[in-house]
Design a protein around this nucleic acid. Structure first.
Ligand SMILES: NC(=O)c1ccc[n+]([C@@H]2O[C@H](COP(=O)([O-])OP(=O)(O)OC[C@H]3O[C@@H](n4cnc5c(N)ncnc54)[C@H](O)[C@@H]3O)[C@@H](O)[C@H]2O)c1
Ligand SMILES: NC(=O)c1ccc[n+]([C@@H]2O[C@H](COP(=O)([O-])OP(=O)(O)OC[C@H]3O[C@@H](n4cnc5c(N)ncnc54)[C@H](O)[C@@H]3O)[C@@H](O)[C@H]2O)c1
Lengths: 248, 248
DNA sequence: GTGCCTTTGTGAAGCCATGCACAAAGTGAG
DNA sequence: CTCACTTTGTGCATGGCTTCACAAAGGCAC
């Protein structure tokens, strides 16, 4: 996950070589930083709603749940948008981060697989709130096709390619059973999509240049279980036993 | 996220100091490794279903979508469970990883907030399939309380503490609106819960020793949008313009 | 037993991310 | 203008993670 797949040939040999301008603002924002920008954006929107005009890195870091040095370094990758002694202008920073993330434009999203999860996603308001527009709901089940959900009519997956091309869909959400996910994935890629959000518990095989992000509830729970067990068993030393019945 | 919060006082000064036994199997599995173990487990279960008795690190890595050296290093943190020249015994490895993750026991999970998302989660089969049992559904809305979902009756959040303590709930899933999440979080922690999976788009404040993992659809989409924009705008060099109307 | 083949387990190197600590830069009072 | 104060932007050190590459280990044939 989080593959280095993108950025295959982005030059990264500046920064320590010549340093042409004071800020290192010439592309190549670290993945870790990109993953935190939405967090900052959310915190900034909260501040903006309360009318706060400027915010220090310390306060914003607190609101976003990160270290303030990390926040400043992250923002420095976008450019020098703060004022020393004052902080960051909330509105201006919202604009800059939004622009960097590509949220100043509208993204058409299609959801494939309108079951329990797909319906929840379709009804989700937080989707639309930030430049993402659900432009299509698709399912293979004739029982489901024709249902009206959140103002959209579910279409048959036969229409997948035409929906994608005709409505300019650039991001596809896969919420089908695991068995169907790779097939759907292949089709949407063939139709030109290069950004996929996958909820099915499978590793999707995709060509270079296609970004897949996955959300896997089961994995999150298992990670929690690991730490929970660790806490319960009272410290780092554990019984070393395992059944001898299991043979290698 | 992924806080270093847990493991506050775990000694990690071995490994490069004395090396008491050939394998470094004395606790302290890296977070990055823990996060991949469920992936390996899933791949192994697929192999087991097809009756495959053993698997090489190369093949398993392929199925899990990782580098084979990384896979071997990850597994070496659990112990020396492979056979050189042969590979890993599928059943045995499933058992070892399950044990390490704490999946040999049953975990009682409560879901708080039974709206669109909460219902989807409650109906999700992949939940139960791996040692997780939904032991309670709770909501604050009297309209929702009493509904029967996936064999469970939704209870009122007034019952939150008693449900947690009486049914031995150790993991809580928060699927309430963002505004209610911190309040719910505080209550479940007061009731003794130390593992939380949060779907609400807020940074939860929790004391040390409590693990929070979050799933945020909106963040994933924004990350995809970032890369999508990068692809579309034809390479690392971009127009440097921004509206002069916006003043700092 | 001997020798060949396969595959693991891990040292070592390189890369990336984190966080400290501070100089530079800006504000505002007097 | 000067000075004290605040806060940014970043050099640097540290540590963790990834990947390569290979010696060690086991299986198997004869
Ligand atoms: N529900 C959850 O909370 C949850 C959580 C984590 C992961 N998931 C995963 O998300 C996926 C969907 O979960 P769900 O609970 O909504 O399942 P679901 O069975 O309720 O819905 C799946 C939908 O996909 C449709 N479908 C099947 N094949 C298709 C195809 N080839 N093309 C298009 N549509 C197709 C089905 O008709 C159905 O409507 C599953 O892979 C599941 O493992 C679900
Ligand atoms: N639906 C999605 O696809 C989706 C995706 C990502 C994130 N989220 C987030 O997940 C959360 C739930 O989303 P949803 O679509 O299910 O919303 P929803 O409004 O459908 O459901 C929220 C439920 O929480 C209940 N609730 C409110 N206050 C409560 C309280 N104090 N205690 C217990 N229950 C309470 C409500 O009665 C309601 O049933 C939201 O924070 C949302 O932002 C949802």
């Amino acid at each position: 996950m989080r593959p280095g797949a993108h950025r295959p040939s982005v030059p990264l040999e500046h920064r320590h070589v010549i340093r042409r301008i004071p800020q290192a603002r010439e592309r190549g924002i670290p993945d870790a930083t990109v993953a935190r920008l939405p967090l900052y954006l959310r915190a900034l929107n909260g501040l903006a709603e309360r009318g706060t005009p400027t915010v220090s890195s310390e306060d914003l870091a607190l609101a976003a749940g990160v270290n303030s040095a990390k926040l400043r370094k992250d923002l420095s990758h976008l450019g020098s948008y703060g004022t020393r002694g004052v902080g960051y202008d909330v509105q201006y920073l919202i604009y800059q981060i939004s622009r960097e993330l590509g949220l100043t434009q509208d993204w058409a999203v299609a959801i494939v697989g309108v079951g329990n999860l797909g319906r929840a996603l379709a009804n989700y308001g937080g989707f639309v709130s930030r430049g993402f527009r659900v432009a299509g709901l698709l399912d293979a089940d004739p029982e489901v096709v024709g249902d009206r959900i959140a103002g959209l009519v579910v279409e048959h997956t036969d229409e997948l390619e035409s929906v994608i091309t005709e409505r300019g869909v650039s991001i596809v959400v896969i919420a089908t059973p695991a068995t169907a996910a790779q097939h759907v994935c292949d089709r949407v890629i063939a139709a030109g999509v290069t950004s996929i959000l996958n909820f099915a518990p499978v590793v999707l095989a995709v060509p270079d240049g296609v970004d897949v992000r996955k959300v896997d509830l089961s994995i999150e729970l298992q990670i929690l279980a690991f730490h929970e067990q660790r806490k319960a068993s009272g410290g780092p030393i554990m019984a070393e036993e395992w059944p001898d019945g299991v043979v290698m």
